[in-house]
């Protein structure tokens, strides 16, 4: 078991190395650089050249990559070109809104999706099942930003409990926190919820057709008990997989949600950093997000291996 865990974690190192090189190369191939933006509208070409040199952007790329990598190995993610603040400090400032949104979204989606999915499977073919399925296709097809604007248009602003934008920390009270985060959670959660709902329905449906369920039914075990004790429990593995693998999916959604609701989180930080070519910030952020993804993936694999010794990747 320990061996397997270590092997999986070591296997993640080349993956992260590939990501680091790929992202670095990609960004430095991009036209445009921070010097022109710092210099501002009225700057002359000489002004820009002077800043370019001062930022060490004129050094050869392999040297810049080496310096960055060396810093990483020593736990130093570098400093932002624009603010001279450490990348990790910027991440820390923006972490809370994003984590809050991710947690509320996961709770909301799971709490709504699993009962609905299980119900649809249990009453497969019924009107209720149809409604759930239609909702699930619809939820998949509406772009998150369109949903966001619909929510703002109909449910936010004056005369409603929901503000149009912004984020309030949970430390400033549960009520204001929930009022601010409710609509973003709904916007981000809808497509995530639909994903979980579909998998729940498919998995439960499959298990409900298994022989032992039929036997249980024949023995007169109440339907409610069959659903909760047998079907849902056995469908748990694929559902957990989707919930954890939905991480990558959440990240993309977070970028747009934070932009629509003006939430100062990591998603917005990344988009801003890309548009300003703040290389150390983008590189650090993408690497951190990817590492989290790889870790979650590895943890999921290890959990499987733990529960099912046959699995050895």
């Amino acid at each position: 078991m320990l061996n397997f865990t270590i092997r999986r974690l070591l296997g993640a190192v080349p993956v992260l190395g590939f990501i680091a090189l790929f992202v670095f190369a990609l960004l430095h191939l991009a036209p445009g650089d921070p010097a022109g933006i710092i210099a501002g509208e009225e700057a002359s070409p000489e002004d820009i050249a002077r800043i370019y040199e001062a930022l060490n952007l004129d050094r050869p790329l392999p040297e810049q990559f080496g310096l960055w990598l060396w810093g990483l190995v020593n736990g130093d993610f570098g400093v932002s070109i624009y603010t001279s603040l450490p990348v990790l400090e910027l991440v820390r400032q923006r972490l809370e809104p994003t984590i809050s949104l991710a947690i509320t979204t996961i709770i909301f989606s799971v709490v709504v999706a699993i009962p609905l999915g299980a119900y649809a499977a249990w009453r497969a073919g019924s009107l209720g099942d149809r409604a759930v399925m239609i909702f699930s296709v619809l939820g998949f097809s509406v772009p998150t930003f369109v949903l966001g604007y619909l929510l703002i248009y109909f449910f936010a602003g004056r005369g409603t409990p929901f503000p149009v934008q912004g984020f309030v920390s949970i430390r400033e009270g549960l009520a204001p926190f929930l009022r601010h985060i409710a609509l973003p959670t709904f916007m981000l959660g809808t497509s995530y919820m639909v994903l979980i709902m579909r998998i729940t329905r498919a998995s439960v449906l499959e298990i409900l057709n298994e022989d032992y369920i039929r036997t249980a039914r024949a023995k007169g075990v109440p339907e409610r008990k069959i659903l909760t004790r047998h079907a849902l429990r056995n469908a748990a593995v694929p559902i957990v997989t989707v919930v954890s693998l939905g991480f990558a999916f959440l990240v993309s959604g977070v970028v747009i949600t934070e932009s629509v609701f003006n939430i100062p989180g990591l998603g917005r930080l990344t988009v801003e950093a890309i548009s300003k070519r703040d290389y150390p910030v983008i590189q650090g952020l993408i690497l951190l997000v990817s590492a989290t993804y790889v870790l979650i993936n590895t943890a999921t694999d290890i959990t499987y291996a733990f529960f099912d010794p046959r699995i050895r990747y």
Binding site: V15, F18, A30, S290
Partner: peptide
Amino acid sequence: GLMAIPSLLLAIAMVS
């Protein structure tokens, strides 16, 4: 590695 990079961020970076 490609799957680990959030697709939307990757796409934004590639378009830039």
